[in-house]
């Protein structure tokens, strides 16, 4: 049986207490919410924190407030099940509900939180392996070594940011609220990420992601398409989130296309977005945008399925997501 390494367990009852504990313990402590990402990593000895600060007993982190008109705030401790099923979220931001509902399995969504999903560790199939496996192949720079096994000679780690909800959050224009010893700050979701497989978050380790703020819906049409081998369990090996606004006559007035699981952070396809603005979304327009969207994606061979397949699927999935958001029949698009 794989087991957790020993740790001290701290369960603060309030946000203030949690912030204080994190400040006090410094780098010896790690935050845990649902534990569905952290515990498997600890069992494989990717992390052996001396202390865990659990957010589960903090009531302030479990709210869902607001309306489609005013925008919504979601506490970071809300579970993925709730995000996928709350009528308020499902009606206003269907892509978000869909992305949350596409994470792994029902059991895992009952445990995993939306905050944890935004902070989930990057993945690489040279890294998400047991201690024995990694020792045998030689430790890589993300844990214990100094080389990259995917891109030899690389100075950086290319582990893949594989959250399902993060690309949707970016496409929606959401922001996150961080609270730490230095105080509280609100940043756009995309500013939370850095394209680096190791230091993939800009947030300080002692900062707690407390809530996510979603802007008013205001006609936003969203879709999320996820590539994976099986309909359950599997992480995305490509995720495409789109958010569109269409004028009465069908002209696109706003567009965001964000790819997940292709790099160490969500990737926004700005060139592709530009191709949509001011256009009616015909199949040709969508196709051109989809091709452009896929261009910045630079996946490496460190997930399930081949890199060339994932690259090739990027325009297909983008076109399907755009068609769905635009109200065209997704399967026949592109």
């Amino acid at each position: 049986m794989l087991r957790l390494p020993p740790f001290e367990f701290l369960a603060p009852r309030s946000l203030a207490e949690a912030v204080a504990l994190l400040a006090e313990r410094g780098s010896a402590a790690m935050i845990v919410a649902g534990g569905t990402d952290l515990y498997p990593n600890m069992k494989r000895r990717q992390f052996e924190p001396a202390a865990l600060v659990s957010l589960r007993s903090i009531p302030e982190l479990r709210h869902v407030e607001g309306t489609a008109q005013t925008g919504l705030t979601i506490g970071s401790g809300v579970t993925l099940t709730q995000v996928s099923q709350q009528p308020l979220i499902a009606n206003a931001y269907p892509a978000l509900a869909h992305a949350a509902g596409a994470v792994s399995t029902a059991q895992l969504r009952n445990m995993g939180t939306i905050g944890g999903n935004l902070c989930v560790d990057t993945r690489c199939n040279y890294y998400n392996q047991t201690y024995h496996w990694r020792k045998s192949i030689g430790f890589c720079m993300k844990k214990g070594g100094d080389v990259c096994l995917v891109a030899s000679g690389s100075e950086r780690c290319w582990a893949v940011f594989s959250s399902d909800t993060a690309p949707v959050m970016v496409a929606l224009g959401a922001s996150v609220c961080l609270e730490g010893p230095q105080g509280k700050r609100v940043i756009p979701v995309e500013a939370l990420y850095r394209d680096d497989g190791i230091a993939y978050l800009t947030k300080q380790p002692d900062e707690i992601l407390t809530e996510i703020r979603l802007p008013p819906v205001d006609g936003l049409r969203t879709a999320y398409w996820k590539l994976r081998r099986r309909g359950a369990f599997d992480f995305p090996i490509l995720g495409v989130a789109v958010a569109l606004k269409l004028a009465e006559d069908g002209t696109c007035t706003a567009a965001r296309i964000v790819l997940g699981a292709v790099e160490s952070s969500p990737v926004e396809a700005q060139a592709a977005e530009a191709l949509l603005i001011g256009q009616k979304l015909t199949r040709e327009v969508i196709e051109a945008a989809a091709q452009a969207a896929a261009r910045p994606a630079r996946p490496l061979d460190n997930t399930d399925m081949s890199l060339s397949y994932r690259k090739r699927m990027a325009p297909v999935y983008t076109a399907r997501a755009l068609a769905q958001a635009a109200g065209l029949n997704g399967d026949q698009a592109a």
Binding site: G35, Y39, Q107, N110, M111
Partner: peptide
Amino acid sequence: EPVLSCLAL
């Protein structure tokens, strides 16, 4: 609710 006992404390 179903949860995974291998990941619960």
